[in-house]
Amino acid sequence: MNHDKKAADTLRWMAWTSIMIGFVLFAFNVTDFRSENFLLMMSIGFLIAGMNIFLLSTVFRLLHIGKQEV
């Protein structure tokens, strides 16, 4: 296993962790839906960050595939 694939797998696990933390925080704080609710805003941030980390994981995988084809 090379380093590019290992980095992509690590990013994928980080993304899943971030999304799960976001869902848990969101589930417990959705009843107080206002912008002053810090935990709710933090949960939305974790969800958005998780999606961005998934995007980076996909980019790492595509770069790895492109490097193998050359």
Rank of each mutant, 00 (worst) to 15 (best):
T31Y: 03
F54Y: 13
M14Y: 05
F54H: 13
I21W: 01
M14C: 10
M1T: 05
T58M: 12
I19K: 03
M42W: 13
W13P: 00
M20Y: 10
V24P: 01
E69I: 08
T58E: 13
L47V: 08
F46S: 01
T31Q: 04
V24F: 12
K6H: 00
M42D: 11
T17I: 03
L25D: 12
K6S: 01
A7I: 03
M20I: 14
N52W: 10
D32E: 12
G50F: 00
R61K: 14
L63I: 11
D9R: 03
L56T: 00
D32M: 05
F54M: 15
L56F: 13
F26L: 14
V59F: 14
N52Y: 07
M51E: 02
F33V: 09
F33N: 13
T58L: 09
L40P: 07
K5Q: 08
D9K: 10
L56C: 06
L47F: 02
L39T: 10
F46M: 04
R61E: 14
M20G: 03
I65G: 00
E36S: 15
V24S: 08
I44E: 05
L56D: 02
M41D: 04
L55D: 09
V70P: 01
H64S: 11
L63C: 07
L56N: 04
M41S: 04
V70F: 11
S43I: 07
G50E: 00
L55T: 15
N52P: 00
F38P: 04
L11H: 12
N29S: 13
I44N: 01
D32V: 07
A27F: 11
G66W: 02
M14H: 03
R61H: 11
F46T: 00
F46D: 06
V70S: 06
H64M: 06
G66Y: 02
G66K: 07
L47C: 04
I53V: 14
Q68L: 09
A49Q: 04
N2V: 01
A7R: 05
H64V: 01
A49T: 05
K5S: 03
R61S: 10
A15D: 03
K6L: 09
I48F: 09
A8H: 07
A8M: 08
R34A: 12
T17F: 10
A15S: 15
G45R: 01
F60E: 11
L40S: 10
T17G: 15
W16G: 13
G50T: 00
M1H: 02
S43A: 15
N2I: 01
A15V: 04
G50Q: 00
F26A: 06
H3Y: 03
W16V: 15
I65Q: 06
V24Y: 12
H64W: 09
M51V: 11
I44F: 10
D4V: 00
F60P: 04
I53R: 05
M14L: 11
M1E: 02
W13K: 11
M14T: 04
K67V: 04
